[in-house]
Write a protein that binds this DNA or RNA. Structure first.
Lengths: 217, 217
DNA sequence: TTGAAAGCTGAACCATGATTCAAGTTCTCG
DNA sequence: CGAGAACTTGAATCATGGTTCAGCTTTCAA
């Protein structure tokens, strides 16, 4: 296992978003896993169209024809991958939160977690972004799901008195936009030795808390 | 000219980002324009790979072969288009500002202008986004250029006393992220009769000014 | 032990669509 | 007006790579 390489699909080689053709034996499950991991790398590096099925199978150390034992098409594989990644992202965010945190701390923690995850799996940007064209439904679902959970967090924060009234879907999308673009700039496109996720998240958090206006005189 | 159709390239059929093969006659300039406009629609509707050169020329009412009088390749056309759009977006933002505005008003105005522009040219999202895969350099340049101009605005705002100290590149990217995602949600993916750009921008602006924390008790 | 079922293999098939090209047609300017 | 430049045309070429397929190997349960 290299550096920021892969294996995001960890134990999940069965998933709800999985292939129509589910393996029945241990050998089959392993091959499927190999294909998914190889695909994550290949799609991440080359993008959907540059990536070729034969290259993926080569990477996975499997014969070309075997691919179609597990997926109906290149497209189906891509969708499965998007589902996997989308799921992983949400998992990581969820794990980063804890009950003791107040609303702002939660936002800081989830952003830091996201940035850390992105750093280990830079492929996600490429793959999720490309889903806009290959699997538009999944792309939209991905962001709408995340937005909903942010909105829910905002609601909870209001109820607990940490956040002001009047925050809703719109602010949730704004927050999501911040997180995505900060990740793009400081993780995916990070120059040399970039800021730590925690430092970045802290600074974003200040902006979130205070806004950018000068103190009212 | 239909509804949200096209003609973004308006008068600019010459641009810096233009094709290597520049037309020398009026007839040529018209054909080039037709190709660019047809391409904006085609790429916007079908995406880069689904779009076909022959379909673009058909749309433009030109013979297939003529395409190569103006562009070296499908790829070159796409790049030219991205340059055009990127340029147009910045133009519109710039036009929306005026000197009397304070820093926050400027942010509101530019966002409102961007949303309005996006509403008229929903293709931009699809095309700019796809540039991530077809023309990565241009994609990155697009966002970095915008971020820089936002950062400059923040600097000016600090100097004028409208904005607090400590805002820089990071906050600029955060702002850009907000704008992009708000546009995605409320313009590109707007349900029925969506909010007006001004209303959206005003609400975002409040978040920017005050943040989301509850008033310090 | 044994016969399906589950997997595996890679050469061959094929559709698609970008690009080329040779032969017109229309400008433009001296 | 005439010659060459600018532009147009669409059929033919060609590369690419996804998908199929017929036969072979491994696994598993009875």
């Amino acid at each position: 296992m290299e550096k920021g390489n892969t294996t995001i699909s960890q134990e999940r080689a069965d998933g709800a978003a999985g292939p129509g053709k589910r393996p029945r034996t241990e050998r089959g499950r392993k091959t499927l896993r190999k294909l998914l991991d190889a695909a994550a790398i290949e799609f991440g590096e080359r993008g959907y169209h540059e990536a070729s099925v034969s290259s993926i199978t080569r990477r996975a150390g499997v014969a070309l024809g075997s691919f179609y034992t597990y997926f109906d098409s290149k497209d189906a594989l891509f969708r499965a991958l998007v589902g996997d990644l989308s799921h992983s992202v949400r998992d990581h965010a969820r794990e980063a939160m804890s009950d003791e945190m107040d609303a702002l701390e939660i936002e800081r923690a989830t952003l830091a977690a996201f940035l850390g995850f992105a750093r280990e799996h830079k492929q996600i940007y490429r793959i999720i972004d490309e889903a806009e064209f290959i699997a538009p439904e999944d792309y939209r679902a991905h962001y709408e799901t995340i937005a909903k959970s942010i909105e829910a967090r905002l609601g909870a924060g209001i109820r607990s008195g940490d956040l002001r009234e009047g925050l809703g879907e719109l602010e949730a999308w704004a927050l999501m936009g911040i997180n995505v673009f900060i990740g793009l700039r400081y993780v995916v496109w990070s120059d040399q030795e970039a800021m730590e996720p925690d430092a970045i998240a802290a600074r974003v958090n200040r902006m979130l808390a205070e806004g950018i206006a000068a103190a009212k005189r």
